[in-house]
């Protein structure tokens, strides 16, 4: 078995290697004047993902891994030639989903969609999280605090796009955090920064929506799904053909009951204990809804 690569190994190698070699001329850093300082506002942000312009280069996917110091996974060719990794995991927050589509004449072509956490406007994962480890920021990102997470995996079950994944080794949830560390520095998310075709664009959600409507694309996804998301996809083929789930336009709240039932159905003893948990969470959710209602308009 090949040893999994981690950023820690890099560091180890780096430290061992440094200082052994003389004859080094110091490199010259960028001057302050050369560094671009971007402005940053607190308006909700979004990413436009234009399926028509994507060439499947996977720069977004690899940039996400490198920026977020996520280890590479071992993969093998599966569903199609290109999609890899084939889904989200605790260590894969962004990947390019390839789909073969056929036109009326029978011609085959590829369509690619760079996918990541949708960063819903009313995220189900946040509403089911009993410890507030997941949190929605006004700028759009749904962020995650590993210190608060108890590993209940409600979010894993609740997300209609199967985004959050639990890392069984580290006991944490892994998912896209909308490069919140970059956004607040006025930078665009790592995935968007390296999109060479303009298939990915970052901006204020209202502007991105306007771009989507003016793009000439027939289909839009993410504007209304689950009450609206921060990822706005546009395409020239229907999203069902690209493997996107049909998601109701209302914010998803009814999931919770079914979800908790399915999690807790292991034996009578566990059932009783889970009821405690279930009502506990329900209380919490209810209270949160109250808080939210009272803070509306702020």
């Amino acid at each position: 078995m090949v040893e999994k690569l981690s950023r820690r190994n890099f560091l180890k190698a780096a430290v061992t290697g440094a200082g052994l070699t003389a004859l080094f001329t110091s490199p010259i850093t960028l001057s302050k004047a050369e560094e671009t300082v971007n402005s940053y506002n607190k308006k909700p942000k979004a990413i436009l993902i234009d399926v028509r312009k994507c060439i499947g280069c996977k720069a977004c996917q690899v940039a996400c891994k490198v920026w977020n110091k996520l280890p590479a996974e071992e993969t093998a060719i599966t569903e199609d030639e290109y999609t890899n990794p084939t889904g989200f995991s605790a260590n894969t927050w962004c990947y390019v989903k390839f789909s073969e589509v056929k036109d009326e004449a029978g011609n085959i072509s590829w369509r690619m969609a760079s996918v990541r956490c949708m960063h819903c406007l009313e995220p189900t994962c946040v509403s089911v999280c009993p410890t507030k480890a997941l949190k929605k920021l006004p700028e759009g990102p749904v962020i995650y605090d590993p210190n608060r997470c108890i590993g209940c995996k409600y979010c894993v079950e609740a997300c209609p796009w199967h985004v959050p994944h639990f890392d069984e080794e580290r006991k944490v949830i892994g998912k896209c955090i909308f490069c919140v560390d970059r956004i607040k520095e006025g930078m665009v998310p790592a995935c968007v920064a390296n999109c060479q075709t303009g298939a990915l664009q970052f901006g204020d959600r209202d502007e991105i929506l306007e771009k989507a409507h003016n793009s000439g694309a027939q289909y839009i996804y993410g504007e209304k799904e689950a009450g609206g998301t921060s990822m706005i996809f546009v395409s020239d083929v229907p999203f069902e053909k690209l493997g996107f789930p049909k998601v109701p336009h209302e914010p998803i709240s009814t999931y919770k009951t079914d979800l908790l039932k399915s999690i807790s159905g292991i034996g009578v003893a566990t059932f009783i204990i889970s009821l405690v948990g279930y009502f506990g969470v329900k209380m919490l959710v209810k209270r949160k809804a109250q808080v939210k209602a009272s803070s509306k308009g702020v």
Binding site: G151, I266, T270, S274
Partner: peptide, 21 residues
């Protein structure tokens, strides 16, 4: 949001049930 005390209570309850599960 929940107060810290409530939160702890909740967390322990959830953790207990999950841990047992």
């Amino acid at each position: 949001g929940t107060s810290r005390r409530e939160f702890l209570k909740m967390a322990v309850a959830s953790a207990a049930f999950l841990g047992l599960c």
